[in-house]
């Protein structure tokens, strides 16, 4: 085996420490008894208890989860269609345009997406009367718009790497394109579909800026609650919440990893 160089390995170790130490400390201090987030005064679950009684926060979390689920599902469909178009339909007219429209949301600053979506909704409401007020549906539409671009990236790379011979065989045996797609292609790209869905879900659950622009009164999402409480200063309840989020994400990744490995 080739000898690995020490400087390289120490940079790698430093990098992982840099990525993980803040999160681990956050988790550790969520079990801290003291209100002061920086002084350790004993182990306690009390912030988790308070979290469970924070009505506003629970409502916001529920709203965010519903938005994230609807968003992920629709973004998965649209993103997969876009990936099909780019991988399967070769050099169609407007291909460059579609590529552009799928790359731009990946890097576009949130403030621009948020503001432009809001102005669109206001203009639409003025001209056609829809959407009547802002909330669940406007936030979901805004989230789908950038999530679908991420889904397209994930599904596209899987589709492009896929072995085409199975599809060709089914085609030669007389199966129709739609049947081939449903019976052969979809099962083969299923892992990418799962990670695309999960990615869209977490992107939506995580978004503060865009949701702040396009939400209306009475539709406060979880990041908006976290943000307003963080602005007041560090709070152990947020640490507890963060720990739960990390735990859920880690669990989802482990489950996804296992279910993919078994295939």
């Amino acid at each position: 085996m080739k000898r690995r160089s020490w400087p390289l390995l120490s940079v790698l170790a430093f990098g992982y420490a840099f990525l993980y130490v803040p999160i681990l400390l956050l988790i550790l201090y969520s079990f801290n008894e003291s209100r002061l987030v920086t002084v350790w005064s004993g182990f306690s679950f009390k912030w988790y208890g308070e979290l469970l009684h924070n009505r506003q926060l629970l409502d916001a979390a529920w709203l965010s989860v519903r938005i994230a689920a609807v968003n992920a599902t629709i973004a998965l469909v649209l993103g997969t269609l876009a990936a099909n178009a780019l991988v399967r339909h070769g050099r169609f007219r407007g291909r460059t345009g579609l590529e552009l429209l799928l790359t731009a949301p990946l890097v576009m600053p949130d403030v621009i997406i948020g503001l432009s979506m809001l102005l669109l909704f206001v203009a639409l409401q003025q001209t056609i009367g829809w959407p009547d007020g802002r909330g669940f549906s406007t936030i979901t539409i805004a989230h789908i718009t950038f999530s679908l671009a991420y889904v397209a990236v994930v599904v596209r790379s899987r589709l492009a790497r896929m072995d085409a011979s199975l599809e060709e065989a089914a085609m030669d045996l007389g199966a129709r394109p739609l049947t081939v797609y449903r019976r052969i292609t979809l099962p083969l790209i299923a892992p990418a579909l799962l990670s695309g869905w999960l990615l869209a879900f977490t992107l939506s659950l995580d978004d503060l800026v865009i949701a702040s622009f396009v939400s209306g009164p009475g539709s406060t999402t979880l990041p908006m609650v976290i943000y307003s409480s963080v602005r007041m200063g560090v709070s152990p309840q947020i640490n507890a919440l963060a720990t739960l989020v990390v735990a859920v994400v880690a669990l989802a990744v482990v489950i996804a990893g296992f279910s993919l490995r078994r295939r």
Binding site: T202, D206, I226, V230, A242, V245, V249
Partner: peptide, 11 residues
């Protein structure tokens, strides 16, 4: 995959 907002908050 964990919240961006929470990771900034950790700092």
């Amino acid at each position: 995959w964990t919240s961006f907002l929470i990771r900034v908050y950790a700092w």
